[in-house]
Amino acid sequence: MIELYILLILMIIGSIIALEVRDLLSSVILVGTVGVCLSIGFIMLKAPDLAMTQLIVQILLVLILIRATISKDVRFINSKKEFGIFIIVIIGLAVFINFADEVVNNLPIFGKPIMWVSQTYLKNALNSTDVVNLVSKISLDYRIFDTFGAMIALFTAVIGVLAIGRQRSQEKD
């Protein structure tokens, strides 16, 4: 259990340094480090499905970020940070912690979830078909509309990016 807390502390430190550092390339690499720590944490919590998806999506994200932020040479951020944003963040954090306190107290204990719906899945999923991987069975059979919505969102993003690119070329002509 203590390894998980070490990973969590590493992730928090990495996120804070990624916000504060001046070099953009170092910031992107620190975001990648946080993703790898999250992936190791998923493996420790016995969720290899999530760990694989998290690792691949994180690599994609870091590649796109490097390509988008750093084109030729490394840029530095020179602007000063405003003091008003700092006060607004502190007020927002205070309100959030005030409301989150009641919610966290009513949650079930870590490691002992309430198995209302999952119990049915665990009993019946293996009998109906020959799908051994239960995660695949749940996300593609019981929760098919969820996956369908996610795929529609991705497809809409592709069409939107293509439409914006085409409009830019028409303006140039």
């Binding site: 499905d49 691949i56 799908v131 695949s136 069975k137």
Partner: peptide, 14 residues
């Protein structure tokens, strides 16, 4: 994807 951890999203990402 139906036998071992993985699936369509992870495979497509790779």
């Amino acid at each position: 994807g139906h036998l071992v951890p993985g699936g369509g999203v992870a495979g497509g990402g790779a």
